[in-house]
Simulated assay, not measured.
Amino acid sequence: MAPRKMKCLKLTTPSCPQINAWIASKAACKDPYYGKCYGIPLACPPGCPKLCEIECKACKPYCACDKPGAICQDPRFIGGDGVMFYFHGKKDKDFCLISDPKIHINAHFIGKKSKKGRDFTWVQAIALLYKQHKLYIGAKNVTHWHDTNDNMLMHFDEGDVQIPFGESQEWRSPKAGIIVKRTAMTNVVEVEVLEVMKMKVRVVPITMEESRVHGYDISEDGNCYAHLELGFKFESLSGDVNGVLGQTYASGYRSRVKMGAAMPIMGGAKKFQTSNIFSVDCVVSRFGLEMSI
């Protein structure tokens, strides 16, 4: 008889991979250029025991969510200036993350009510607009989490993006200069817009430990709140770039968050909000404008 599926946050569910989230996984350098480090499994740090990256040059593991350009958790941002801040936005709304003359990226937020007077929110999907093209990447609605299931949805222009299962499998759009490559068997891809940017996208659920620490009470409604963790690396942006994350890469930017606060908050939600995930109508939009000199 096939094993029964159990909810991912019950303490009595030994089959749920998230129950063992504190058991350290390992990662390895995947660049053969670094021969002394290439392929050697290294234990992930305590701060990210299940998911980490390897700095091949130093041959050390690190938490991707602590690098500049990262967006993780209840959205926790690391700006291009290295300063950490939170931007909660609002559930079921869309916000501009990056807006530059040649590229624009929006995020759709999901969330739930909390006892702290605001919604808990997470990034459920993103839309990348480049030239006349549109790429959508989102997390499926998940009630039972299994690491072996692919919980990522991708669409390009009017069609689905289908990538064969397996690490290093990829999809390309030569006309747009966009490459989407799997960097794990499931739920993790790297998106490259040639000569513009790279973006790591990972689908993750809310873990039991996160729910306990932050008071999410996720187990009550049977929804794992699968969401995206993002990491950006930019090759070319204008000095006038804007958006929740983009502004931190702009020329002369100075952080407005309260330094030293336990939860430094980035405000200004209204100027970053868009009418839908594919819209560029946020107040700070730069998309399609001529490059700043």
Rank of each mutant, 00 (worst) to 15 (best):
85 F>W: 09
254 R>S: 13
265 I>Y: 15
197 M>F: 06
276 N>I: 00
182 R>I: 01
111 G>H: 03
52 C>G: 08
274 T>A: 13
154 M>P: 04
165 F>G: 06
112 K>F: 09
159 G>C: 07
130 Y>Q: 09
88 H>F: 10
49 P>G: 08
88 H>S: 09
112 K>Q: 14
246 G>M: 05
275 S>L: 04
253 Y>K: 05
136 Y>D: 12
210 E>H: 04
157 D>R: 13
164 P>Q: 12
249 Y>S: 03
130 Y>M: 10
124 Q>D: 14
9 L>C: 06
33 Y>G: 07
14 P>Q: 13
192 E>L: 13
131 K>A: 12
196 V>L: 09
82 G>W: 08
144 H>W: 01
226 A>T: 14
10 K>V: 11
137 I>M: 02
79 G>N: 04
143 T>R: 10
124 Q>A: 11
13 T>C: 15
184 A>W: 01
83 V>H: 03
232 F>M: 06
205 P>C: 06
16 C>W: 01
44 C>Q: 11
11 L>Q: 08
32 P>A: 05
283 V>C: 03
253 Y>G: 00
287 F>L: 07
161 V>A: 05
98 I>N: 07
281 D>Q: 12
72 C>E: 03
4 R>E: 11
258 K>H: 11
36 K>Q: 15
173 S>I: 05
154 M>V: 01
250 A>I: 07
159 G>R: 13
24 A>I: 04
98 I>Q: 02
270 K>A: 14
72 C>I: 06
223 N>Q: 13
232 F>P: 01
1 M>L: 05
169 Q>W: 03
9 L>Q: 11
37 C>Y: 03
52 C>Q: 11
181 K>E: 15
228 L>N: 06
161 V>K: 05
112 K>E: 11
26 K>V: 13
232 F>E: 02
181 K>R: 15
172 R>V: 10
207 T>Y: 00
55 E>P: 00
65 C>R: 06
